[in-house]
């Protein structure tokens, strides 16, 4: 097992290097620079722009820039944002709590909806409940988040006036009213994301349960006279959830990566909105850092999923 872990971790190094080379080259080949707004401003002489480019090293050849980035990254220096001239790790740390809170809650909501609905639908296939749940799930994951987001805003904020649609990080006060304000502004983004992911998960849980419930050992358990509830919980769900756990583990990086569209609509200051604004302003160090951290997380959680799988399913062994 330890050997397996070490081997996997060693394999991760070249893949991370490869990812970083590809990311860096694509970003370097992409046209544009962070000084778009300076270009149309007649008060700023072009020499100033050229000098800024040079001072940020944008005019050096790609391979030199890459090695400069890599060596400082290995030393733990993430570089600084061209646009805000702040260290990238600071920027990311500022965004992380909000991202974890909002996206994490939406994942919990997704699970809380998907597990019971999926299991119930799977144990009663083609019943009315299953049909309704299926239809709603299809609708849920067919509607993109930017559409449901706008729909929610129009209905709950503009028409009913119940919920705010601008996410605020500076809510004053303390105690219960403060918590309630936070919950109020989180409801819409969390629901939009949670229901979208939950809908896809419902289909997955249902099919996993369906696969298991037809197996012979379930029939055996039933013929032993076990209560239906016990059969489902102990024999069906436990085994059906093995692939689901893997899926959830693989989705974990998303929790850290944020949700670009939803964060933009509700002005949630998370990693997703940091990434999109960095991309729009060609802020290479920020894009590199966020995407690189993201790829590290993907690789890490892939490993986690594999390890978990072996732990849940003793038939799998590692060599």
């Amino acid at each position: 097992m330890t050997q397996y872990l070490i081997r996997r971790l060693l394999i991760a190094i070249p893949s991370l290097l490869g990812i970083s080379v590809i990311l860096f080259t694509v970003l370097a080949l992409a046209p544009g620079d962070p000084f778009e707004e300076l270009a149309t401003n007649p008060a700023i002489p072009p020499e100033v722009r050229m000098q800024l480019r040079a001072s940020l090293g944008l005019d050096d050849p790609i391979h030199m820039r890459y090695f400069a980035w890599l060596t400082s990254m290995l030393r733990g220096e993430w570089g600084f944002s061209f646009v805000s001239r702040i260290d990238v790790d600071q920027l990311i740390m500022q965004r992380l709590p909000t991202t974890l809170l909002v996206i994490g809650t939406s994942q919990i909501v997704a699970l809380a909806v998907a597990l019971p609905v999926g299991v119930l639908a799977g144990t009663r296939p083609y019943s009315t409940f299953d049909k309704v749940a299926n239809t709603l799930a299809f609708v849920g994951f067919s509607l993109p988040t930017f559409f449901t987001g706008l729909l929610f805003i129009l209905f709950f904020s503009v028409y009913l006036g119940w919920l705010p649609f601008v996410y605020r990080t500076n809510i004053a006060g303390s105690g219960l009213p403060w918590v309630w304000e936070h919950i109020k502004q989180m409801i819409m983004p969390v629901m939009v994301l949670g229901l979208f992911q939950g809908a896809a998960l419902v289909r997955f849980v249902r099919s996993a349960v369906l696969d298991v419930i037809r197996l012979d050992y379930v029939t055996t358990a039933r013929s032993k006279g076990l209560a239906e509830r016990r059969v489902v919980m102990k024999h069906v769900v436990r085994n059906a959830l093995i692939p689901v756990v893997t899926l959830i583990a693989l989705q974990m990086p998303i929790v850290f990566g944020g949700a670009i569209v939803t964060e933009q609509i509700f002005r949630v200051p998370g990693i997703g909105s940091l990434l999109i604004s960095a991309i729009l302003s060609n802020d290479t160090p920020v894009i590199m850092a966020v995407t690189f951290v993201f790829s590290c997380l993907v690789i890490f959680f892939n490993l986690m999923a594999d390890v978990l799988y072996g732990w849940l399913d003793p038939r799998i062994s590692y060599r």
Binding site: P31, G32, D33, F35, E36, E37, L38, A39, T40, P46, R49, M50, R53, L280, S281, N282
Partner: peptide, 15 residues
């Protein structure tokens, strides 16, 4: 795209 059109990127022909 605006970020290309208005960039000072010497290598790009579309600025």
């Amino acid at each position: 795209t605006a970020s290309v059109f208005f960039s000072s990127d010497v290598a790009n022909p579309d600025t």
